[in-house]
Design a protein around this nucleic acid. Sequence first.
DNA 1: TAGATTGTTAATCGATTAACAATC
DNA 2: TAGATTGTTAATCGATTAACAATC
Lengths: 213, 213
Amino acid sequence: MPLSPKVPTPTLERLATYYTILSDLKSRQADTISSADIEERTGINAAQFRKDLSYFGEFGRPGVGYAIDELHARIGRILKLEKTQPVILVGAGNLGSALVGYPALRADNFRIVAAFDNNYNKIGKQLWDLTIRDITRLVEDNATLGARLAIIAVPVGAAQDVAERLVEAGIKNILNFAPVVLRLPRDVIVRNVDFVQELAVLSFHLPDPTTNP
Amino acid sequence: MPLSPKVPTPTLERLATYYTILSDLKSRQADTISSADIEERTGINAAQFRKDLSYFGEFGRPGVGYAIDELHARIGRILKLEKTQPVILVGAGNLGSALVGYPALRADNFRIVAAFDNNYNKIGKQLWDLTIRDITRLVEDNATLGARLAIIAVPVGAAQDVAERLVEAGIKNILNFAPVVLRLPRDVIVRNVDFVQELAVLSFHLPDPTTNP
DNA sequence: TAGATTGTTAATCGATTAACAATC
DNA sequence: TAGATTGTTAATCGATTAACAATC
C-alpha cells in the first residue's frame, strides 16, 4: 500500500464535502457523476476535484465519470468513516448537549459514547442517553472506552486542562470549541471551531456604516 | 481613507484570533506586546502577524512593540466589533438554543435579537429571552430589526430555502451550520461551520487500525 | 469510430516567511 | 548610543487551475 505522501488539509476538507454530497446522491440519482457535475454542485473546480482524488489513486473512467456508490465508499474508507468511531465529549453544557443530539454525527458514523464534566451538580445526571461522568475519571474510563477522538466543549478557562487530560488518556485527535489556542505536543492534532471568529470575519465584510448624509 | 485593497481571508481569521487573545491580555498583562510574544502565544509566525496588520496601516513602534489596548481597539474597529451587531437566528433546535445561550457571542458584541422557526409547535414559545417567530415573517420582521448578519441552524433540507429568505430580507452575511453547499447570489458571503467535516478530517489522521498480529 | 472525460503535468496564483533597512 | 523590534520587500513555499495526452 503506497502510503499517500502528504495530503494537503484543504484536500481533506473537500473530501468530506464530496462525501456529504455523494451520500445525498447515492440512492436518488443516476449512478455516475463527472467532475464537471461536482463543480456544478459544490462550486469546487473540476480539476481541483480530480487532483484531490489523485492523491489516493484512480477513481473514474475517462469518457464516463465516477460510479457514485464506489466513489462514496472509497472516500469513506479514506476518511475512515466505514466503521463507527467512538467519540468522547467533554463539557455537558448547552453546546455539548446539542452535539450529543446532533443527528448528522451519527449519520456519518461518529458516536458520542461518553460525556464528562467537572461540575458535581451535573455528574451522574443524564444527557440524552448518556450518564455524565466525572472528568477526573477520564483517563481510567477511556482505558475501557477506547475512544481516539474527542470534543472539547468547555469554557475557555478549562480547555487547556481538559486537553492535557485527553492527551494523557491517549486521545490525540481533538475537536476544540473553546476559543483558545491549545498548547499541546506536536503529534496531537487539534481542529478549532470558533463561532465568534466566523462571525467576526462576516462582520468585517459588512458594508461600512456610512456617516449620515 | 485608503480602502484596503484586498485582504486575504486567512488574515481576517487570524485577526479574530489576535483580538481574542488581546481581550484576554488587556487588563491583566503588561501594556505592550511584541510580534514575537504573539508568536509565542498563538503559534502564528511573527512576520505573519506584522504582515497581517500591514494591510491596515501601522500599529507598533520599532524597538518597543504594540500597545495592547490600542491594538485591541484598532482590530476591533477593523472587524467592526466596536458596536453591538444584531444577529438573526433561524432554527430553534438544540444547536440554535446553545448559540443563543453562548456567552462568548455577547462578549464579542454579537447579539442574537430574534429566533425564527417553521415549526408551529415552537413558534410563540420562549427560547431563553426570545419569543420564537414564524419564519414566514422573516422579511417583514427584519425590516424592523435591521439585522445584517444571520445564523442558519436548521436541518439540511430547509437550509437553501432559509438562505434565500434571508437574502430577500437584505441579509448578505450568513453563518451556515447546515452541512450543505448553499447556492446564492455572488455578493452573499457565507461561512460554513460543519462539525462532521471537522471530525472527518480528524478521523483521517487516526492511526490505521493495524490488522491483527 | 467520435465524443466525452479522466489523470497528471506544467503554469499560475496567492499566501507564508526570512531578511533587513528604518526607527524608536 | 546600543539594542530591540517594527514595516516591508523579496524569496520561498504550497495550493489552485488550465491544458492535454491517454483512455473509455
